[in-house]
Simulated assay, not measured.
Amino acid sequence: MIHLKNIEKVYRTSTIETVALTKVNLHIRAGEFVSIMGPSGCGKSTLLNLMGLLDTPSAGQVEIGGQAVTQYRDKELAQLRNQNIGFIFQSFHLINDLSILDNVEIPLLYRKGDTTGASRRQLAQEALAKVGLSHRTKHFPGQLSGGQKQRVAIARAIVGQPSIILADEPTGNLDSAMGNEIMNILQHLNTEGSTIIMVTHDEAMAKKTHRLVRLFDGAMVGDSVLVMSDK
């Protein structure tokens, strides 16, 4: 599903060179729920961005679904991202001036082949139903709690029915009860077939996934199976 081979990522300015990732080799199989942990600044979000095709490695190769994408042009990367990957962020990234339904619809606006507003609206309504927010479609982000905002963000991530969901600290801004609700939704999406990779600082949340990858100073220092996936 996702294969990273000898990945390195170096950020350079005229005076400073910062190594974010070094010699990372990681294979994530279809249907897995993988958590990534490590101290702040160890490269977790950089790794997630590379898997999400939001950034490119300085060296090494990224494969998505058997396709080597390192040499893809920006337009090709954008199309592959839109068709195959859903993103969930710690800070939600909702547009306050749009209704919940409109927020969820946004990824579909960039899809070729989705010809009617009615079909996009139907898919957005179905995604909101999956996260238990059918009754909030006309509300705006400012009218929701943090947990509800994150559920909207999940609905937006899954509206295009991607095979891969990347979640960067999806419970980081929530209390433990709301965090557990979000994890329950992610676990359910995983049982339905989504491959999920989640960055987290929370050991308890990580233990709810199938596999735990640990990073330190840009290098993988651990990769352990927690629960066997039946995918």
Rank of each mutant, 00 (worst) to 15 (best):
57 P>F: 03
73 R>M: 15
73 R>T: 14
78 A>R: 03
64 I>H: 08
88 I>L: 01
78 A>K: 11
36 I>C: 13
51 M>E: 00
73 R>W: 13
57 P>K: 01
79 Q>A: 13
42 C>T: 03
61 Q>S: 13
85 I>Q: 00
79 Q>L: 11
38 G>M: 06
34 V>K: 02
71 Q>V: 15
44 K>V: 14
86 G>S: 10
57 P>S: 03
76 E>V: 11
77 L>A: 04
74 D>T: 14
45 S>F: 06
51 M>F: 15
62 V>Y: 15
72 Y>C: 10
81 R>W: 02
50 L>V: 14
65 G>M: 03
68 A>R: 08
65 G>A: 04
39 P>G: 12
60 G>V: 04
83 Q>W: 04
89 F>Y: 09
63 E>I: 04
34 V>Y: 02
73 R>F: 11
42 C>W: 09
47 L>A: 04
62 V>C: 11
84 N>Q: 12
54 L>A: 00
41 G>V: 09
74 D>G: 11
55 D>L: 15
59 A>Q: 11
82 N>I: 06
44 K>R: 14
47 L>K: 02
73 R>S: 15
46 T>K: 09
44 K>C: 09
61 Q>T: 06
67 Q>K: 14
59 A>K: 09
36 I>S: 03
56 T>E: 15
65 G>Q: 02
42 C>F: 05
77 L>D: 06
51 M>V: 00
90 Q>V: 10
34 V>F: 03
42 C>M: 10
72 Y>G: 03
50 L>S: 08
83 Q>L: 12
34 V>S: 05
80 L>G: 00
69 V>M: 10
83 Q>P: 08
70 T>G: 14
85 I>L: 00
73 R>E: 14
89 F>P: 07
57 P>M: 01
89 F>G: 05
91 S>R: 07
60 G>H: 08
43 G>Q: 04
34 V>I: 13
57 P>T: 10
58 S>A: 10
65 G>P: 04
42 C>A: 12
53 L>W: 03
36 I>T: 12
90 Q>D: 04
90 Q>C: 01
81 R>V: 03
66 G>Y: 06
68 A>M: 07
74 D>W: 10
86 G>I: 07
84 N>Y: 08
57 P>W: 01
90 Q>P: 03
37 M>Y: 12
